[in-house]
């Protein structure tokens, strides 16, 4: 009985997700000596609706935009979407230090390099 309910509940969520258009967000990728920086375009997505998962060398980013409107439709060029994209993350990234901020619909995702991966200047000693 309990299990039955769970299946129903799950089915409901899957259905909702399936009805939502899935879109691959545009990204810019930058790098400096300390980190890799991603700028991901997620217009209309609030920070609560964004998830970033890094597992086993893969970064999965999802964001959903749901905006109901109770008015009469004049025209509609964009609607509810689910942004999703995954990246392979180099091992040199310090996963624990990853941080993100959201500004004007752009997610800034900072992937810091681990100490070992940073370029080092080797001092040449004279004798």
């Amino acid at each position: 009985m309990e299990a039955n309910k769970m299946i129903q509940a799950d089915g409901g969520t899957a259905e909702t997700a399936a009805n939502m258009q899935s879109v691959i967000p545009l990204v810019d990728i930058y790098e400096n000596n300390d980190e890799i920086l991603l700028h991901v375009e997620l217009p209309g997505v609030t920070k609560e609706a964004i998830t970033v998962n890094i597992d086993n060398g893969t970064l999965v980013l999802t964001g959903t935009r749901t905006k109901g409107s109770d008015g009469i439709k004049g025209w509609r060029e964009f609607g509810d979407v689910r942004f999703q994209r995954s990246f392979s993350v180099p091992q040199a990234i310090d996963v624990a230090q990853v941080r993100a901020e959201l500004k004007d619909g752009i997610l800034h995702l900072h992937l810091p390099k681990s100490e070992a991966a940073k370029p080092r200047i080797i001092e040449i000693k004279s004798d």
């Binding site: 217009p43 004049g74 509609r76 060029e77």
Partner: peptide, 27 residues
């Protein structure tokens, strides 16, 4: 599916007013 050169918009008639929204990420 690349973002076009002009933003996409939605228009809804709410009775007393129109609600127009436009996608302008990064602006």
């Amino acid at each position: 599916s690349v973002t076009g050169t002009t933003p996409r918009t939605n228009l809804f008639d709410m009775g007393e007013y129109f609600e127009l929204s436009a996608e302008v990420p990064g602006i």
